[in-house]
Each structure stands twice: as C-alpha cells, then as structure tokens.
C-alpha cells in the first residue's frame, strides 16, 4: 500500500535563525507591524510503500531521524496519511 508522508523540520527552541530574523525585520517595509515570532523550517513530502500506516510511519521517522533532521539543532514532526495520486 502507498502512503503519503510529511516531515516538518524546524530549529529547536532557543536557536537563533538568521533567515527568520531577516524576514521578520523586512516586514515593516511591507507596512506590516502586527506579525512577530516568524519561524522558518522545511517541509519534506514523499510516498512510502508499506503494509500499513504504522510501518509507513516507522520508515518516515527513520528517514527523518537519520537524514532529514540533525537532532543537535533541529526537531522533526512526522505524519503519514493515505496516498492520493497528485497527478490526477
């Protein structure tokens, strides 16, 4: 069976992110003054072939922990759902 997995990688709390800070500092240029706490992360999406959702989640977690996120500075949120053919 095919499952759609998503992994959201973000920096651990308390670690400065110059990219997020730069975006936040640019907001007044747009006339926006009501936005704060900008965070920047990454979203990975992929398809997993597995017997069931639990096995798909395990594969996605393993990929997230071993490659997609570095636990020294990042955390990963992993989710698995039913596969939808995006080409249709």
């Amino acid at each position: 069976m095919k499952f759609t997995a998503s992994v959201e990688v973000s920096l651990l709390a308390g670690i400065a992110n110059p990219e997020a800070a730069t975006i936040e500092h640019s907001l007044p240029l747009l006339g926006i003054t009501t936005v704060s706490d900008v965070q920047v992360g990454r979203l990975f999406r992929f398809v997993v072939d597995a017997h069931d959702a639990e096995a798909a989640l395990e594969t996605a977690r393993s990929l997230a922990d071993r490659l997609l996120a570095n636990p020294v500075m990042e955390r990963a949120e992993v989710a698995v759902g039913p596969w939808r053919d995006a080409s249709r």
């Binding site: 670690i15 400065a16 992110n17 110059p18 990219e19 800070a21 730069t22 570095n70 020294v72 500075m73």
Partner: peptide, 17 residues
Amino acid sequence: LTEARLLPGALMANGGG
C-alpha cells in the same frame, strides 16, 4: 565530521546571515 557524529555539535548559518 559533526554530521557523522565524530565530533560534537553542529555548524549553522552564520549569525549575520
């Protein structure tokens, strides 16, 4: 070497961007 965990820590984008 840090990614391989042969050394502690990590190297992140420079503070000044």
